[in-house]
Design a protein around this nucleic acid. Structure first.
Lengths: 216, 216
DNA sequence: ATCTTTCCCACCTAGGTGTGAACC
DNA sequence: ATGGTTCACACCTAGGTGGGAAAG
């Protein structure tokens, strides 16, 4: 059985007086993508997510050890199509590749460690390669996913698959459709506008490139 | 008191039937530098060592936790000069900046973890900035240093400064003189020949650059 | 003068972007 | 024909080299 089926998912925003709390960083940006219908590219060699998954934690016991993990989980049982400018369900989901738990490389570490900095999962990549051996999340293209985040006491690690006492968080804004090529131009543009690595496609740079081509 | 004064340093090469063993990677390259009189550049912002300090560990208990640490320690009490193509002592050492223990960022981790891969200390940088706040090794230019390596059981971490039971290794080949600019041309050339980041200064590339300048 | 340090630079490594044509 | 996938590519970010001029 799966942890997300065992505990009631909390949202990052909720106010829990006691116990761990996780807040999604860049949530405004995530929301902008979400409003357009987030797409994440998957490739054979693995592709980062953008926006990156980064969390701000609080409410941990400073001297206890914790393991942090993330799972990219199917959002529903459908396969999707992008037509007439929108995503619509189109049939039942394909068989699900083995779902993988991505454990944050700093794990295990103290509550103090995790709370002192932004916890980044930028090393978790998305792939459609069924044979992937790098521990990336293997996804089906044209399927919808959402991110689950787990906080476990270090001494519970081995029980991560069947314990009831692990804190589970689900961030609705992180829902996305996996694609091998962007479908929605507005998503492409939002990525270009905000991802530093795509700076070469921003307006000014793109205009210069056009000029260059024109003059040949 | 200091750990290196308490235990007899072992060499990386020794055969210890039981107990931890550490072997210096690239020891042939280290030896080449050593034979010429290794120099390491120090800068205000911090400079990597080349060759990089990388160790291969064995003899740890797979399921025990260990903290790994490195210390750049003065090799003697002298200040050096480079004249007539050789390094010679020239007076007493300047006051020693506070010596820092650099703890490997993966620490603490299991014996299994440390033995499964090459342990790299490439993030430890050398600096002459007395106000450094990044945890780099603060050294005196024109002074000679040697690297000490420590293996401590995780539950001994807090005692690292005064425990007798920590394994200490000293690698003679890692001895070097800290400089703000290279003195020995042969050292410069050996760095250029082997450090990938200095490829631009290798023969072919350098020749091309000359041609380019000449034709202006 | 001489020795040492600092700074900016061109040149690299390493690897993250979307593109657009080719492929299936 | 259509829809989805792959690949090489130009263009970035990020940061590690020694050179050489300038400064101390």
């Amino acid at each position: 059985m799966h942890p997300c089926e065992l505990t009631t998912p909390k949202t990052g925003q909720q106010e829990s007086i006691a116990g761990p709390k996780a807040v999604l960083e860049d949530s405004k940006l995530w929301q902008q993508f979400y409003n357009l219908g987030t797409e994440m590219v998957i490739t054979k060699s693995g592709r980062r997510m953008f926006p990156a998954l980064r969390l701000r934690l609080s409410g941990l016991q400073p001297n206890s050890n914790y393991v942090l993990a993330v799972e990219v989980t199917p959002a529903d049982g459908a396969r999707y199509k992008f037509q007439s400018g929108r995503w619509t369900p189109a049939g039942k989901a394909d068989p699900e590749p083995p779902r993988r738990l991505y454990i944050h490389p700093d794990s295990p570490a103290t509550g103090q460690h995790w709370m002192a900095r932004l916890v980044s999962f930028h090393k978790l990549k998305l792939t459609n390669n069924l044979c992937d051996k790098q521990g990336y999340a293997v996804l089906n293209s044209m399927h919808r996913y959402v991110i689950n985040f787990y906080i476990a006491q270090a001494d519970q690690v081995s029980q991560l698959a069947f314990s009831r006492s692990i804190d589970t968080f689900q961030f609705a804004e992180t829902a996305f459709i996996a694609v091998t090529a962007y479908q929605n131009d507005k998503i492409t543009q939002l990525k270009i506008d905000h991802n530093p690595f795509a700076k070469g496609f921003r307006e000014a740079a793109a205009a210069l490139r056009k000029d260059c081509k024109r003059s040949r």
